[in-house]
Computed example of a mutant assay.
Amino acid sequence: MGARGPLACAATVRHLFAMTLDLDAYLKRIAYDGPARADLETLNALHEAHINAVPFENLDVHAGRPVTLSLEAAYDEIVTRHKGGWCYEMNTVFGWALAEIGFDVTRIGAGVRRASLGDEAMGNHLALLVRLDRDYLADVGFGSTQVTAIPLEEGVTDHAPVRMAMARTEDGYWRLHEGGPGAVMSYDFRAELADEALLAERHAWQITDPNSIFYKTLSAKIRRGTKHFTLRGRVLETQMPGRSQQRTLNTPEEVSGVLNDVFGLEEPDLEALWPKICARHKQLFPHASRQPVG
């Protein structure tokens, strides 16, 4: 990892996370009651506990409510108010918790779909590197698909119902494919400290620009064991090993029920957002535009 060393990394993390928060409250939030020690077994157990307890979601972004890029705000959102979050929130809180336990953690900036969007994608995703016997990619904020840490080496790992493939690009980046080797959904990163200014810039763009997918589409994702649930507006997809199923939701009440029952979330402005949700549904699923919307 070049010049990055344990002392430099630890100092950087402690500087970013220089505030007093309750680690025990976080561990209770993710229903983790195992040992808190800096080893691979604990890292993987914490990783899996987080993605099974905290939904990936963009409700505040989609509704146009203020979203602040800070550990304090993310901790309040996820731990205190028992809501979910997206990569900037999820991996910020997870990285803080790991550092509190004693892990050597580095925040890294990544680019989702850099393969097609180019370098302008860089900074649109936050992930983590954890140094143990080797470097591991930890990421609880990529739609809850990655179950455990992934060694920073080329290869395929199983995260049923999906596979992850780590590869090198010709221009020196690491590329993580969600869905196995060559899968279209991927992100690129370098094993180096994130450019925090770039992360802040891309965060601001994604919460305000009408072209941002997070601004346009209400989304929520969570894992329950080997079942992975994805809500995109009016469509709930359940992915299981070897099969998947979809359900179209036709009323605000149905969406509210799914948010509550599947993701443990509430959207107070759902009625007001419903026309926007339906308009986006017609864009995403034009073949279904004649279906009743309640």
Results as ranks from 00 to 15, higher is better:
A272R: 13
G242N: 13
N52W: 00
K227G: 04
E271D: 14
P252E: 11
D133T: 08
S289G: 00
P6D: 14
R243F: 12
Q283A: 07
H62S: 03
D39P: 10
W274I: 09
L21D: 12
L128S: 12
L199F: 13
I207F: 09
L59A: 02
L46H: 03
A31Q: 09
L198H: 03
P6M: 13
Q283V: 14
F285T: 00
L218D: 01
K28S: 11
F285C: 08
F142E: 00
D76K: 05
H203F: 15
A272C: 01
M240S: 09
V162W: 15
L273Q: 11
E77V: 07
L199H: 14
A138T: 08
P55C: 07
I277G: 09
G264I: 05
F214G: 09
V156A: 03
E57T: 05
A10I: 09
V184H: 08
R131K: 12
I207W: 06
I30A: 07
R134W: 00
Y215M: 13
A165R: 04
A194R: 05
P286K: 08
I101Q: 05
G242F: 10
P286S: 07
L43W: 03
E41R: 12
D269C: 06
D171K: 14
H62Y: 13
R243S: 13
A53K: 00
C278F: 09
L23W: 11
A115F: 06
G179R: 10
V54E: 06
R4N: 00
L265T: 06
T226E: 15
A10G: 07
A45Q: 06
I108N: 01
R247L: 10
F94P: 07
A110M: 06
W205Y: 15
V255A: 10
S256M: 02
L16D: 10
V61F: 04
T226L: 00
G84Q: 03
T148H: 04
L98S: 06
G182L: 06
L46M: 01
T217W: 00
R247C: 01
D195V: 08
D119C: 06
K216V: 02
L176P: 08
Y136G: 00
A279I: 07
A36T: 15
T169E: 13
R280I: 03
L137D: 05
Q291L: 14
E253M: 10
S116A: 15
R81Q: 12
C87G: 08
Q245G: 12
S219N: 08
F103W: 09
A74I: 00
P161K: 13
L128Q: 12
C87I: 00
F214M: 12
A74T: 07
P252A: 08
R14W: 09
A10Y: 05
G102H: 07
T145Y: 10
V54I: 15
Q146D: 06
L249M: 06
E72Q: 15
E153P: 01
P241S: 03
G2T: 02
D261P: 06
R37F: 09
N260F: 08
N91F: 06
E254V: 04
D188P: 02
R113D: 11
K227N: 12
Y88A: 05
A99W: 03
D158R: 10
I277Y: 03
T248P: 01
G143E: 08
